[in-house]
Amino acid sequence: MTVRVQEETFDPGLELNSFTQSVQGAGAVVSFTGVVRDVEGKLAEMLIEHYPGMTEKAISKIVDEAKTRWSLAGALVIHRYGQLGAGDQIMMVATASRHRVDAFQAAEFLMDYLKSRAPFWKKERTASGDSWVEARDEDEDALSRW
């Protein structure tokens, strides 16, 4: 299980290939890449703040929880912080399992929990000013299905 919190960008294709090669006995590999959405063509940049120390712990705890719920041959989480532009990748999750259901469900679980339980905060910078992205009720509701 690998958790990386980093400022620099990453290549999702390379990461997926090396993850796939590293897992033993998996018949299914699922990956998700989150990308900075443009705000009606106005986004100048996105700033992601995090809580060094807690971030790594919180993500590891989420991954450990996923491991208790599904049979996983491996899991990878990469999440960036710092200054990002529209179209840049923010984060990536990959899961591997013997059969696809575990990998799909674990990946969705990881995404839902990363969204509202890992200490990251996004700020959008546009020509009309800066604003913190607000958490949505749906994000919290998404956790209740697990």
């Binding site: 998700f32 890449t33 989150g34 990308v35 992601i48 995090h50 809580y51 807690m54 999440h79 923010i90 984060m91 995404m111 990363l114 969204k115 509202s116 339980r117 890992a118 200490p119 990251f120 905060w121 996004k122 913190w132 992205v133 607000e134 958490a135 994000d139 919290e140």
Partner: peptide, 11 residues
């Protein structure tokens, strides 16, 4: 102790 708004990670 840390204080912060609800988190907004992910995509």
């Amino acid at each position: 102790v840390a204080f912060f708004p609800p988190m907004t990670g992910g995509e």
